[in-house]
Design a protein around this nucleic acid. Structure first.
Lengths: 232, 232
DNA sequence: TTAGGCGAAATTGCATACAATAATAGAATT
DNA sequence: AATTCTATTATTGTATGCAATTTCGCCTAA
């Protein structure tokens, strides 16, 4: 009766897609990494065809850039793309919060609560900590039962990890957990506006910590040294 | 000097993608249409490989469904998917409005105004009228210069045409044009809240006209005839 | 030493071939 | 006549092959 033990879920192309996506989100493949079709295929035991398909999907999700004739690479969103992304995220997650506020089932509350506990537990492990923080948001989205909303929030959360990788500070995820707990409380209590405000603040604080204080253009970097050397 | 006259923009796969997308949005390929790789490739003069790539992209955009081993078909969103889709659209287009309100340049105003004029002119032509109405929204999104926002609004607008095709009434797009003009006025005047409210009303009226009063289950259809025949 | 160019190797773009799965039609049985 | 079974055909899943393009190392020339 057992059909195919290997490759959980859909076709094998999807498996490749998931593998790459995971690797990117975990920052095992940092932004900018080249993604040659045949080495990936060789490593994963599939042909270039399937890798290609996965890369197309990933590019549609904004996780990889597909430069014609020059191969695929993990995307390197600009600072402004990052800011815009969080703006869009805000708009969508506000809808999530509004949809969920006061409508959480006992079961959903338990799931979320357990997840937050997991976040607290993993506070020290940097990689897992980031992934779990993102998963909290996708979990919330999932509970809206709104397919397009789910898809977009998932995409944006995934891409956020790219932004964080590029422009985030080393240890920027500490206070996030407590904010998640607070948010859950507001949602349970059905205090929609407060929940939305909290979510806004939450995302804002992430962007503020991550995006603003970064000096990453050559100009800015040089500026620092220029000042140090008294060069105007 | 001339490189390649044919296929405007990116690779040929993109061309296939655009062709199919256009055909779907114009309802030349109505929801549910089978999309065999061979025949499409033959018709467009490319191999299955490229068609496949385009179909993957389209499936990511929610315009086609990719049933494993059973081929691709133009998506047939359910009524509930439709409602959720418009909810999501609302959240994003509110962001569009908030971003644009009071910040339109003279040039942008002219572009939008001209577009609305075009909509008025094409009022009689059903197909063009629907497409133009959608393009107004994507035009607005475009002006935000927010890449993710643009991408998602484009996707949702495209999918909306599927919803309209499935559940819309024959002539449901009449009042839309005047609402577009009103919206533009509010945006110019910088009356953000009023503009947002107008956008909300605008999308609401579309969904209300399109989604709610549809009799599409066999039960409902039969109910009509039952009443006509005095069959309770 | 640096810049430029040339050729080999690597990599992508695309088509095609073959295997696997599903759809279909026709025959045989009831 | 209806139905199930089977053989045939159509279509998808995946790998591979070839041409085109890029990348890289190496060599030459200033």
């Amino acid at each position: 009766m057992a059909k195919k033990m290997s490759d959980a879920g859909g076709g094998r192309s999807q498996a490749v897609h998931r593998a790459l996506k995971r690797a990117i989100i975990d920052q095992a493949l940092p932004p900018g990494s080249k993604l040659p079709e045949d080495s990936i295929g060789e490593r994963l035991g599939v042909s270039r065809t399937l890798v290609r398909e996965a890369l197309v999907r990933l590019s549609q999700e904004g996780l990889v850039e597909l430069r014609p004739n020059k191969g695929a690479a993990v995307a390197r969103p600009s600072l402004e793309e990052g800011r815009n992304l969080f703006l869009t995220r805000m708009a969508l997650e506000r809808l999530v919060v509004e949809t969920l506020s006061g409508n959480l089932t006992r079961e959903q509350i338990d799931t979320l609560s357990a997840h937050i506990a997991g976040e607290e537990a993993a506070r020290t492990e940097h990689a897992a900590s980031i992934r779990l923080a993102g998963e909290f948001h996708t979990l919330l989205a999932q509970m809206t039962n709104n397919a397009s909303l789910i898809r977009y929030v998932n995409e944006l959360v995934a891409r956020s990890s790219l932004i964080l990788a590029l422009y985030g500070r080393p240890h920027s995820s500490e206070c996030a957990v407590s904010e998640h707990r607070e948010l859950l409380d507001k949602l349970i209590a059905g205090k929609t506006d407060e929940a939305a405000a909290l979510m806004a603040h939450h995302l804002d604080s992430i962007t503020a910590r991550a995006l603003l204080p970064t000096e990453n253009s050559i100009q800015d970097v040089l500026a620092t040294y220029a000042v140090a050397e008294g060069l105007a």
